[in-house]
Design a binder for these strands. Structure first.
Lengths: 198, 198, 198, 198
DNA sequence: CATGAATGAGCTTTCATTCAT
DNA sequence: AATGAATGAAAGCTCATTCAT
């Protein structure tokens, strides 16, 4: 599709708002179009069908997410620092975009199995980034050498995800980024953190 | 509703099978009725509406879950042992009922926000049980005294949940209960586990 | 489908009227339902989809057609007499049901190729009946022995069909059954008719 | 419209190909435009609307048809010879242009009643030509004096048309022009042909 | 208690046509 | 003359729920 045309992002952003405000099943194409300020038919000049809007939405936002985190952890020395940066950025980005948080944590999970499998495909880029940090931590002797990477990754992602979902469900009543440090502490403890040997 | 009549559980069990085999959105009331061996209209003698079947389903299964775990941890001395029991039982019960695992990990999450809020209400009993173990761990000096109970609970539940989901999505190809011990290790590490002072 | 239930024929008859009065593309399912005095959804208890209504319509009407003609020609001695009976009955039945004539001659031909192929399948029963008459005519020495059955059948069906279509298109202004005899004369001449040897 | 501009015929020819290859309902204006190598909007500089393309298509092709036949029968002496020429030319022209045959015999008949009435208007020129031949045959004593011209015309056109349709539907598997002579024989028999008196 | 035939609201997508450039 | 991006109306089908028997 024509991803460089301005209307492409305009429609995706409209979809985020429409879904967040109306719920997944109540965000009809006509509502997304109205929110984007275009005609219903225009949607189909940029997206194959409704599902394509949602996959593209997730791809664009997740891509932005991964890029952003990659940049931020590039300058960090240790795996523990990188993990902190990742947790912080994850929580900050979502706390700054309520609509997006609602969509990713609640609404998009109502999609059918097919769509969820495609979303998981996109998620893999993010999970791979976590895996690299864990591996580095093991190699640099920060984490316990017997650490199961897959399990550690599930703990890290599961904990962050559960926390954000809980924040969204509680109507964003608490300060999400403030949880980055204590969560990070839990996670590196879980990974058997020890001060790197100087 | 008439929960002690045999058809009540008959319909709930039929719903689990119908949803697991057809997917949430393809499990029409008529399919559940056929699976249960009753007429469509009969469903409405036992449940207010379709959503009520799903909430009741979750309540019944989660109640059995909590009861089962409560029993098993009753005899355990330490919080760490109790946590191991909880992880083990959680993984074992779901690995023994494929249909139920598919329904709770994948299909029921496609429900709308309203239904999920109600399901979360039911889930609270389980989360409270986790909270009690964490608190006991802090009091008995097994876990670090500064541990944030809510975060620790989210780590514990998030990690287990993420692992089970991953097992279901991978078509149950690996031995789920075998992961209880390593997951437990991660979690008590995360909680800053130390040997209880004798 | 449940062909013996009264609503089955009720819907088919409503479809004939709705299509004749509104045209093929303007005969929406909702219009057919309204004409039949049932809800839109009820249609789908008796027919798989809209196309299925049209095929069934054609099957029922054509079945009635063939039966009716078969009965009438059963008592006739010669092929020429049988052919006259066929032409007469064909013209009479359609002239007695204006709606049906409009549907078969004009509206149903607007259907897509798929549907038309299925309709042709149904039509075969009728064409076979013509073939049997021609064959009998040849065997009884009424028709010329070199007669090409396929061509003769196309002449017979083509001529009748063209005449009925012309009658429908001229808004049924002339007396259709009155044309049976002269058409019959044309057709048996075309077949090289000669008085059967006594 | 601007019929002498080259793009006029270019679009008509594109429509024949697009309809033959995609079917009437799948031959969208944008497909015709692409086939013609022009922009969608350009179509509307030469035709009022989509229906206008189809009527013009039929007019142009039918005009060529009639001209061609008129020329060929000009030199013939008897009505029987003229009729043979007409049948032969009709079958030959269509057998030489598969796309056009598909369009006129199958696809254009899917159009709505309005369009078909307009097409019939155009067809009248051809039918009049047939009428003239029949009349001549009666006057020259070749055909039976009691012959009903309208019926004879319907027999002639209906038989040819039915044959061509059958050829198209059978994917042009047999030699269509070869049928001219036997069809002609059927038709003049039908008209009560007798050798003209010398 | 149980049935199951009937209901009818609701939504994605297509495509002929327009019009600013 | 030519373009092609944008428009927006229109319809078949599903399925949770009801209610007469």
């Amino acid at each position: 599709m024509k991803k460089n045309k301005p209307k492409y992002m305009q429609i995706i952003d409209a979809a985020v708002v429409a879904i967040a405000e109306n719920g997944y099943h109540q965000a009809q194409v006509s509502k997304i179009a109205r929110q984007a300020g275009v005609a219903d038919g225009t949607i189909y000049l940029y997206f194959k069908n409704k599902e394509d809007i949602l996959i593209s939405l997730f791809q664009e936002k997740m891509g932005y997410f991964v890029e952003n985190i990659e940049e931020k952890i590039a300058g960090k020395e240790t795996a523990a620092e990188k993990l902190l940066m990742l947790v912080e950025t994850h929580l900050t980005l979502l706390s700054e975009d309520r609509h997006l948080a609602i969509v990713t944590q609640l609404e998009l999970r109502q999609s059918n199995k097919d769509l969820r499998l495609k979303i998981n495909e996109v998620l893999k880029g993010y999970l791979t980034m976590i895996d690299r940090i864990i591996l580095e931590g093991i190699e640099k002797n920060e984490f316990i050498s017997t650490l199961d990477i897959r399990l550690a990754r599930q703990m890290i992602f599961g904990t962050i995800d559960e926390t954000v979902t809980s924040w969204v469900m509680n109507e964003q009543k608490f300060d999400l980024p403030a949880l980055a440090k204590p969560i990070h502490q839990l996670l590196i403890n879980g990974c058997g953190y020890r001060q790197p040997v100087m």
